[in-house]
Design a protein around this nucleic acid. Sequence first.
RNA 1: GGACACUUAGCUCAGCGGCAGAGCACUGCAUUCACAUUGCAGGGGUCGUAGGUUCAAAUCCUACAGUGUCCACCA
Length: 726
Amino acid sequence: MKELARAYNPQETEDRIYQLWEKSGFFNPDVLIKNKVIKKTANPFSIVLPPPNVTGALHMGHAAMLAVEDILIRYHRMKGERTLWLPGTDHAAIATESKVEQILQKKEGETRHDLGREKFLSQVQQFAKESHDAIIHQVKKMGASLDWSREAYTLDTERSLAVKTAFERMYKEGLVYRGDRIVNWDPKMQTTVSDDEIEWKEEQAPFYYLKYGPFTIGTARPETKFGDKYVVMHPKDKRYAKYKQGEKIQLEWISGIISATIIKDDSVDMDFGTGVMTITPWHDRTDFEIAERHNLEKEQIIDQKGKLLSIAGEFQGIHIKKARPLLVEKLKEKGLLKKIDKTYTHRIATNSRGGGIIEPQIMRQWFIDVKKEFSFPHTGLAGIKKGQKTTLKKLMLHVVKTKQVEILPKRFEKIYFHWILNLRDWCISRQIWFGHQIPVWYKGKDIKVGTAPPTEQGWQQDPDTLDTWFSSGLWTFSTLGWPKKTKDFDTYHPTSVLETGYDILFFWVARMILMSTYLIGEVPFRTVYLHGLVRDEQGRKMSKSLGNVIDPLTMVEKYGADATRLSLIIGAAPGNDLKLAEDRVKGYRNFANKLWNIARFIQMNTEDYKEEKNPKLSSKDTKILSDFKKTKQEVTKLIEEYRLSQAAETLYHYTWHTLADKILEDSKEVLENKKTRSARQYVLSMVLQELLRLLHPFTPFVTEELYQQLFLKDKKKNLMIESWPA
RNA sequence: GGACACUUAGCUCAGCGGCAGAGCACUGCAUUCACAUUGCAGGGGUCGUAGGUUCAAAUCCUACAGUGUCCACCA
């Protein structure tokens, strides 16, 4: 046997080991069955990788996700389960498109409209491909044991079929509908945005009090007020009791005398401002809802580029930003401006995907109706019978309430319920080009929905694309072949665990539950494990502008993937954010080296060891073995409970402070003595061998390398598929 | 406005009814010996505050304070 090097060198080791794993084919459960490593009848264990967006490179959050999932996967694989970890990437529609638009703008000063749909899309695809390759490279660097033969992409042919099939089925059920509704319009990116993609920003803005006939109304946005002809107050407000619902009054307004109608509505806050407001239903959600309740007329004031329409009289064609001061001036002249409050702060909606300030608009869009009743079409979902009346909302609540899906940590269940109770219909159409084009064709007033275009002439496909979360909502089963009947689907769905950041609980986790329960009558996963965000030393979010980004690849190059993984696991409770300092990574690099030297010591002292069947163990030897057994059991229990941080820490502590500091020190004497030498050799060799297996899910590279060098006789095998020590 | 989480050593955090713990940092000593990416020893904490439950509370309950996050239609 070759003597081990004096220190562990991850740079020299890791790529070689990863290649060895890939070459063995053992990431693929089918290969394991074929090689009789596991039984075909073994329990399946499956995780579908949350697909990283093809918008650039991986960050520390991705690295943490990969570490957690790889630990679970390697553990279950070693336990002999039929283990599948399926990789893929997400086209991330709006995020990717906006990124390429930015690059285009910077480089060529062009917009996507200058290029045209086809040319622009080919540029996006090029960008997506480069991102994809960089991401896959990084994923492998982290040691992730993913089955690459099953890799998927949210925009590839199979996933497209799944998307179209899902859309068609939901359309036929009436769960997908087209309607004129108020949506979040981003005038900058020229697209709608879902409620969840909005980022609210605090802003101080002047608040204007305007004379509106006998009333005083308050507004932060006078430039939307041109068409206001309804004045709303609370039905119980005594100050305005003399005005009756539906009563009409004449008053002087921006462009002359108008007739305004009195409306009484509960949604008005009597304590805010004067307790009276006028409404702009076309450009404000609350106002829209009031207008719907009272069946009021709605009028568009602002166009899709943010310019005023003819209703604004002499202000027509002026952008709202420029119009405001001009209008305020006019109001002053007409004596309609009573006062300005300059201390007012409010929140403005912005598009979190790199867009501008949201301007609500009433537009014709596609929606998923979450409240509509339908008869449940499947059997086999506990608690809901085939034919039973239900809604998508009820399904989403039901499976979590009945624990068919368990969310860890538990406190997120409450947040999940609350979100669903407030959920509105989901706007799924986007006016962008990169994504799944909506599978709907029009010809005059006729409409066709299906998985393939109509064969006759003259049909025009809807130019819009689907919200990216529509396709990722199908991810757990579209990756397994659905809508085709496949072996993979039968074997691996529902998946065992969905591991992701708590920040996309609503975006994604909820949508997967919606899609899966409706389309196939199964939960998408049994357990949701939510990890926290990786932050910098001071607890700030990592961002390019702050310059505090720690790149996982840099850490891997400097300290090794094993060290990087441990730094992301130890100290990270599920759902809690992790503060990461480079010193910690360094500390775990030292740990890998410590383990290396433990192995080196044992190797140097067991070269003459001949295996004995019944070694004469001293009481100290027995104690070592029984303590080790306790550690094994504890680690196993902790992993089963998803307390990976504890499990890793237990192993860290055992390795360094029990095995190295106590047992090895003690062994130096014991090994000197000819009578006790051989039994101790037996103990050390056995503890090391099993310890490497226990540590393997956490630090796969160093353990594999040591195991290869010290214990593996059959070079066709590797530690990755050895059995978990019982 | 509502909800949730956190508050334990200088820093990061674990412990979640039974003698206050770990890593890093700090101090002193050791070392051609598996490892300086090391070892041994040590200093350092009224477990946010105030009550309550209990034989026993960092741990369970209540209130309060600070910090953070999420949600919400205050024009």
